[in-house]
Simulated assay, not measured.
Amino acid sequence: MGNEHLIGYARVSTQGQNLEQQRERMLALGCTRIFEEKISGAKRDRPELLRLLDHLREGDVVAVIRLDRLARSTSDLLQIAELLRAKGAGLRSEAEPWADTTSPAGRLILTVFAGIADFERSLISERTSSGRSAAKARGVKFGPKPVLTPSQIAHASVLVNWSRTLN
């Protein structure tokens, strides 16, 4: 794996699960430090991941056993990979050898994924916009439902006008 400084990130989703298997595999890979977390990947606030990102130095490589231990989704993975790139660090997954940003092929694959994710976001936005326009054309009203009835609004207007005549 070269002279890079491998730093591991291990995560299990629940307190009942064990990090031991991930820890052993990361030590076998040569990780000099392992950040461990027992927290759902769906949580945005993952303190050990934040500590890991803060700890990283240029040339470090974050090692994970599988990408789903690190990221919740493709967009989350791409965001984390970009944070690593900005720090001059790499990413390597044992189970997904194509996800190795320390190699030109791995960087290419993640770049392609980023392009696909961007394309997907633009398609979703376009479909949402088209759907909203079609719904408006059918008379659908967006936003919260009015709390007051039309008669209550008319009564409030009378009261406001009445209070203005007093001043």
Rank of each mutant, 00 (worst) to 15 (best):
V140D: 04
G143T: 10
A99I: 01
P97A: 07
D68P: 05
A117K: 01
A99Q: 02
R107A: 05
A71F: 00
V140R: 13
K87Y: 03
E120N: 10
A86V: 11
E120V: 11
A86E: 15
R85Y: 02
R121P: 10
E96Y: 02
A71K: 00
V112A: 13
E96M: 11
I109Y: 06
L108Y: 10
S130K: 15
G139T: 02
P97K: 05
I124R: 07
D118C: 07
I80E: 00
L84R: 02
G131S: 06
A117M: 04
S130A: 15
D76Q: 08
R127L: 10
P97E: 07
G115L: 10
E82L: 08
E126F: 13
L83D: 06
S130Q: 14
S73H: 10
A71T: 01
F119D: 10
R92K: 15
S130T: 12
D68H: 08
G131M: 08
R138N: 07
A81Y: 00
R92E: 08
T102M: 07
S133F: 11
P97I: 04
L70F: 06
G88C: 09
G143Y: 07
R72Q: 12
R107T: 03
G143L: 09
S133V: 15
R138D: 09
F142K: 09
K87F: 02
S93L: 02
D100N: 12
T101N: 03
W98D: 12
A117T: 05
F142Y: 14
A135P: 06
F142W: 07
A86R: 15
R138C: 05
I109D: 00
S93E: 02
D76L: 03
R69H: 06
V140H: 05
A105W: 10
D100V: 01
I80V: 13
I124E: 09
R92I: 11
E120R: 12
R127P: 09
R107V: 03
A134W: 07
L123F: 14
L77Q: 01
L77N: 01
L77Y: 01
L84M: 07
S125G: 13
L78K: 04
T111P: 04
R69C: 05
F113H: 02
K136M: 14
S133E: 15
I109F: 13
T128V: 14
L77M: 12
G88W: 04
K136H: 09
I124K: 09
A81V: 03
L110F: 03
R85H: 07
A114I: 00
E82Y: 11
R92H: 14
G90Y: 00
G115F: 10
A99S: 08
A105L: 15
E96W: 03
K141D: 04
E82K: 14
R69E: 04
L83K: 12
G139S: 08
F142H: 11
F113W: 06
V140F: 08
F142E: 12
S73Q: 12
R138G: 04
